[in-house]
Write a protein that binds this DNA or RNA. Structure first.
Lengths: 125, 125, 125, 125
DNA sequence: GTGGTCTAGACCACT
DNA sequence: GTGGTCTAGACCACC
């Protein structure tokens, strides 16, 4: 769970995204219990209120459900779960293309730069 | 100059980025005068002070220089100008890779998705 | 914190200098929390936005760091802190010499006048 | 005539001070004709209006007098002329002392730093 | 309450 | 008209 405290993006929304990514990665599965807001707050060095807001937001969008006294769980809604990964990926792709286009970079060069960077990282890493 | 008023990213920073992009695209050149903050404010439908802040930020990072009572001009610093395009492009590539990696997507699939989306857009557009 | 509202020097820059001076004097130490911009605004009888600008300038030059929702703190960068005093003093000395030289006053007389004035003040004060 | 276009001190006041300094240095004497505002504007790369304001200010404080059709001249007011040098020098000394005191520097160290810097400059220059 | 952005409008120095 | 400071007050995210 990587949070960027200097990003203009609100922390609670960053937390929601991180949960979605964990789901996309398969690190979190439907039915899984997620830490209580207090626990999460301690782990992430964030104020409990902020975690609360993140959890409320996740509940609101149907990502989780809360069982009184038992905790918060990833909802078992296959349709939604399936779409998360592809939706977020598509969004990332689009954002990338828009950004590159804004810089006046042609599609061929976009693919080229992506490939180059991936190759470089493979060697270094 | 496209501004997103709902983005969490401050408007004045968006304006700085837009100028950088225009430079990267070659639409703006060293020595060019950019509109006065009041003019820009009217065009972009934002408060003059917000534009001022963007302009001061640009001055601060050495992107522009200001002549008392005459206006604000793109600085003629070839080295810096050359690097803007590649720096911003590289940043976009990295951000894309990180985002995709966060979703558990492999390098090959990244390139694949990018290519697919670019192809689709070509047909549609 | 003495501010001169009639000085052509912007208030927000005067405030930055005052903090630097307090550091040089040892009245402020690394890690110290400085008053919130709203508090400072009330104390100094200036607009909160003006204080904000001063605080942002301090952050920009690496004098302070800010913790979301907690406040603004003097940065713990010993190297920088040590240099502030000597840099500001050296600047003052240079400015003095230049000013006196502009008046056609010789080095010996500069030292002489300084000594005289210091003596006079000692007796008066 | 050195003008600092980035100083917060208005240029027209800087010009007044420069004339005073030239008088203090003896480069300008009572009765001397000073350049017309247009000439001065060209020499100093400044807008004629700005020079006009400087000249008006000098007239206002009794430093110069204008003879219709003949130009502007340094006034022959011995009392005032005599005081300029010592007044400006005293002001510089006081400002220096205040600045150093603001940094928590003791009188002895002030004199010490001044002497050191003067010595260093003598060797370098 | 704390940092931070934005708007609106006044005032100033310089061209 | 151009850059620039300051005030006043609203609104937001986070603690």
């Amino acid at each position: 769970m990587q949070l960027n405290f200097n990003s203009p993006k609100p922390i609670y929304l960053q937390m929601v995204d991180e949960v979605k990514k964990a789901l996309a990665r398969g690190e979190l599965s439907p039915g899984d219990k997620i830490p209580s807001h207090k626990e999460r707050a301690q782990i992430s060095q964030v104020n409990p209120n902020t975690v609360m807001r993140a959890y409320q937001e996740m509940e609101r969008v149907g990502l989780t459900e809360t069982l009184r006294g038992q905790g918060t769980f990833i909802k078992n809604d296959p349709a939604m779960l399936l779409s998360i990964r592809s939706e977020m990926a598509q969004a990332a792709v689009h954002q990338f293309i828009e950004e590159m286009r804004g810089l006046g970079i042609e599609p061929d060069e976009m693919a080229h730069m992506l490939r180059d960077t991936l190759h470089m990282e493979r060697k270094e890493g």
